[in-house]
Design a protein around this nucleic acid. Structure first.
Length: 275
DNA sequence: AGTTCCCTGAGG
DNA sequence: CCTCAGGGAACT
């Protein structure tokens, strides 16, 4: 599911709701989530009793800052999402955090059909030094256009692959790379080194624009993504090319797909230019 | 730079 | 039955 706008939505919700709460217990029926952190038993020992003092996003990761300098980094992968005391059980719950604040109690559920999610637990220093976090590129919402142009000038190859590379920029995935390339009228197989500078500038502005628009709409829900309350995001209904194969573009062209690596790119075969 | 795999479910 | 799915690590 989740790309930058979805993870941003969840992280903001978590921050608003959970700061000041304490982890009382942790349950999981899928200990594989914790293989990279020394296993579930160790993770339980580390987490139980800690307070939540902050929640942030780094790329597509949610970072829980815990008392004592510890952090929990969560990658939702394809289908993971958090639910805080949802009105209904939405299923596929493989992890539960029991929380308390004074005499109040709450349960934070992790729902994840495909069980691809990953959790990393440890001291802040330890976790941030791990390659999956340390090697993340800058965030598209904080990088300047100048930095973006410098970075992309150092990259050659298919622009779609470069946008998806988390070491280039962190947070962009299949939906928003397709949408940004569509808005900038660049065909996804274009080589970065052949795209004119003014078009790269446009690409960056369109990328930032579409990410911000989706954050306002609380993300895109195709199937699994939900916010903390279990509500879907609205961007998917307003998407331009993603998952619109065969539909007509406003220019009269038809939306086609092409495989780029292991991903499907969607583009208008008429108005997007191949460089 | 291009597969393959991790998992499960939906849709053709 | 088969292919595909918003991600990314680990392999050639």
């Amino acid at each position: 599911m989740p790309e930058l706008p979805e993870v941003e939505t969840i992280a903001n919700d978590l921050k608003r709701r959970l700061i000041g709460w304490k982890i009382k217990n942790v349950w999981s029926d899928w200990p594989k989530y914790f293989v990279a952190s020394g296993g579930f038993d160790r993770v339980r020992r580390v987490l139980i009793g800690r307070g939540i003092i902050g929640v942030n996003r780094r790329g597509k990761n949610i970072i829980f800052n815990l008392s004592g300098g510890y952090v929990l980094a969560v990658h939702l992968k394809m289908t993971g999402h958090f639910l805080l005391d949802p009105p209904a059980n939405l299923g596929y719950i493989h992890l539960i955090f029991e929380l308390k604040k004074g005499s109040k109690k709450a349960k934070l559920y992790f729902s994840d059909v495909r069980k691809f999610g990953r959790m990393i637990v440890g001291t802040s220093k330890e976790v941030m030094a791990r390659p999956e976090l340390k090697n993340l590129g800058p965030d598209p919402l904080t990088i300047t256009i100048k930095e973006f142009l410098t970075r992309i000038a150092g990259r050659r190859g298919r622009v779609k692959s470069v946008l998806l590379d988390q070491e280039f920029l962190s947070g962009v995935g299949n939906i928003y790379s397709d949408e940004a390339l569509y808005l900038a009228k660049i065909q996804p197989l274009s080589r970065t080194e052949k795209i004119p500078p003014q078009k790269l500038k446009l690409l960056f502005n369109k990328l930032v624009g579409v990410l911000k628009k989706s954050i306002k709409l609380r993300g895109a829900t195709r199937r699994d993504y939900r916010d903390l309350a279990g509500r879907p995001g609205d961007y998917f209904n307003q998407r331009l090319v993603y998952a619109r194969k065969g539909e007509k573009c406003s220019c009269g062209g038809i939306v086609k797909t092409v495989k780029v690596g292991s991903r499907t790119a969607h583009y208008c075969s008429k108005c997007q230019v191949l460089y």
